[in-house]
Design a protein around this nucleic acid. Structure first.
Lengths: 234, 234
DNA sequence: CGGCCGATTGAGGCTTATCAAGGCCGGTGG
DNA sequence: CCACCGGCCTTGATAAGCCTCAATCGGCCG
């Protein structure tokens, strides 16, 4: 369990991440200044309300972003995985983190100082433009999700959430979701209750839309699930 | 009703808008290339699904951003006014506009070519950084709003929507909302029905939270409204 | 003055959250 | 190896909140 940080220049996530078109010189600076740590499944790497001081990259793993709303209700705003940049919402939210982030499995995290990263951006318009596109994309996805969650009924929200997990964390060739989530966690994604998740999943199984086996969930009929939420092109 | 476009260099919205730290040279280029038009109350300036080709600035007026969801349900995603940049979500949404935009009152609009604006950004890191912060701010606000709309009950959503209109479009010294919205429109902001809006507004009036007079709505007790939605600091 | 459109108010029914009971499964200790 | 325990999941019953439909009201304009 060595804590030797990975080398940015040969990081396996470099090619797919936002840093893909970052020059070697720039990366070398980031590499020297970056921090690195591990988090175990279930542990938090960011606590809601903490001052915003760093940007975080998921070097390896899966995380959930959780906020607390009225009456203490928990909501999973977002899921992220290896290669994703997280925590940048602190930039806009009065320089505190608007949400907590928990590891869904043992994960490794790199982080760099806020000011260093922002200065890097300013001296590198291409990188900044990529970040801009990234954030604009997040905004677009969030607005679509908001539209869905405020209009859909429970069954539709559950279907949408399953597809969201499927798209975000991937799946085996049998359609099995590559993450283990409790009913409560799925409920916090779909903005409903754990009982409704149980009911909907049971219904979906009898309707042949999914298959369950222990804690595993297989999406065996994607077109049907997509049709439920108004996606008609397979 | 002359259609002479305003001069960017002396535009009254320059100081408060995103273009505030744009150099005169840059503004001169934009000024020469920009388009300008008027739109009457109720008319659309952007139609959902249109190809994304321009960025739009509200030179003068008030607008609503509307999307259509499952079963044709309309939702008002956002309100904007004089000086605001609108339409940039098309950037992320596969280069089509994800929403329609309607004028809430007679308004004047400036627009510039997408590529010209993006090139301007790339050659001006400070401006790009401001746009980045703007978008990050929009993302943050959208996430807060999503949390609210998915957790709150109807009364709370109506209170939240009234405060949103109040903050966005301003108010007279008597607390009167400076915009005229139908019950249906308020419902599309709060994600409920026009009947529930009627009921909630009547209740709020008897509870002394607001006052109504014809089509006018006065927010006469802000602290009470804010307390309803969990804002305790006055 | 009449008609039309939006707002209001009430009644009914549907969806969903909540509460409660029972089942399943994995872990632990006898 | 088996019994027990606790946590999570499932399923059912109930109740509350909300949407829908419908009737009435009120203002505005022709």
């Amino acid at each position: 369990m060595a804590l030797r940080p990975p080398d940015c220049l040969i990081c396996e996530t470099r090619n797919c991440s936002i840093m893909s078109n970052c020059s070697d010189d720039l990366l070398k600076i980031i590499d020297e200044k970056k921090g690195f740590f591990k988090v175990r499944k279930g542990q938090a790497l960011i606590h809601e309300g903490m001052p915003f001081e760093k940007f975080y990259f998921i070097h390896q793993g899966k995380i959930k972003v959780v906020t607390t709303g009225l009456y203490g209700k928990q909501q999973i705003k977002r899921l992220a995985k290896t290669g994703d940049l997280v925590g940048f919402r602190g930039m806009a939210a009065n320089h505190t983190f608007p949400a907590s982030i928990y590891a869904l499995e043992d994960s490794t995290i790199c982080h760099i100082d806020k000011d260093l990263f922002l200065n890097t951006l300013k001296s590198n318009p291409n990188l900044m433009f990529n970040i801009l596109l990234l954030i604009a994309g997040e905004l677009y996805k969030m607005e679509v999700r908001m539209k869905n969650l405020t209009i859909m009924n429970v069954r539709e929200k559950v279907a949408e959430s399953l597809l969201y997990v499927y798209d975000t964390f991937g799946h085996s060739e049998t359609g099995e979701l590559e993450v283990s989530l409790s009913r409560q966690e799925i409920a916090e994604i779909a903005m409903t209750t754990k009982e409704q998740i149980s009911r909907s999943l049971s219904e979906f199984e009898t309707e042949g839309k999914i298959r369950m086996q222990g804690k595993k969930i297989f999406l065996t009929n994607l077109p049907e699930l997509k049709r439920m939420i108004g996606v008609f092109n397979g």
